[in-house]
Amino acid sequence: MLRRLLTVYGLMFFVFVYAPIFLMVVYSFNANTLNMMIWSGFTLDWYRQIFGFETSITDSTTYVDSSAQLYAAIRTSLTVAFSTSILSTVFGTALALAVARYRFRLAGIYRTLLMVPMIMPDIVLGIALLIFFISIGMNLSIMTIIIGQSTFLISYVFVTVSARLAEFDTSVEEASADLGATPAQTFRKVTLPGIAPGILGGWLLAFIISMDDLVITYFIAGTGNTTLPIHIWGMLRRGIKPEINAIATLMLLFTLVIAGVGLYLRSRRQK
């Protein structure tokens, strides 16, 4: 009986989580231009549409004002994601190493403080960052997005790298020193390869979250800098139209590819 219940519960879980995503992907191929809930045939027009190709869909039904704007948003998002993820990976890793290796007073409190940004409501973080940038007289720009996102993405990298460090056996670092390696050489040849899966994981996580962040970024982006989520949000405000499904499906694909690459690199390292 309990088994049956658990099975049903498990199935429902998957339905609730994946049904909307599944429907979104299906709708992105639906040829019905008037009501996307009704299937009228397979088409790739929505995809052609967002990339600015000629389609049979008349302009009045679409809200991608111009694919140039979409491209610009994607470019901004990628620039931000690359800069932020690299920045937060460097700092997050350094912090994780410091907290793991050096005993200092209040290390526990420090560790907790580093995790706080992950549980902080986005709105609060967004407002706080906005006020901060304004009060130090910094104009909102792509720079403020990068700095702002880094402040909380460091936490994610910190946690991922810390987890890896916790299971990393420091005796190999001693072995390296014993064989004559300077601390710098030991770090490069032994420590870094040892925690590389954690660093890589943290970097990918930071990249994906950065690509995806709407609320915080919305507060600190200013007017001239539209990231992909902000762009999509803008389109949605004028009604849900099928090409949104296509854009979201592409984003999903992109995320899956990144995660897949991460898993692949990880499994290769562990062999």
């Binding site: 190999v172 014993d178 390869p193 040892g194 390292r269």
Partner: peptide, 13 residues
């Protein structure tokens, strides 16, 4: 000085 460690401490990567 070099050491053969009790628990080997080999570089497994």
């Amino acid at each position: 000085v070099n050491t053969v460690f009790q628990r080997y401490a080999l570089f497994d990567h």
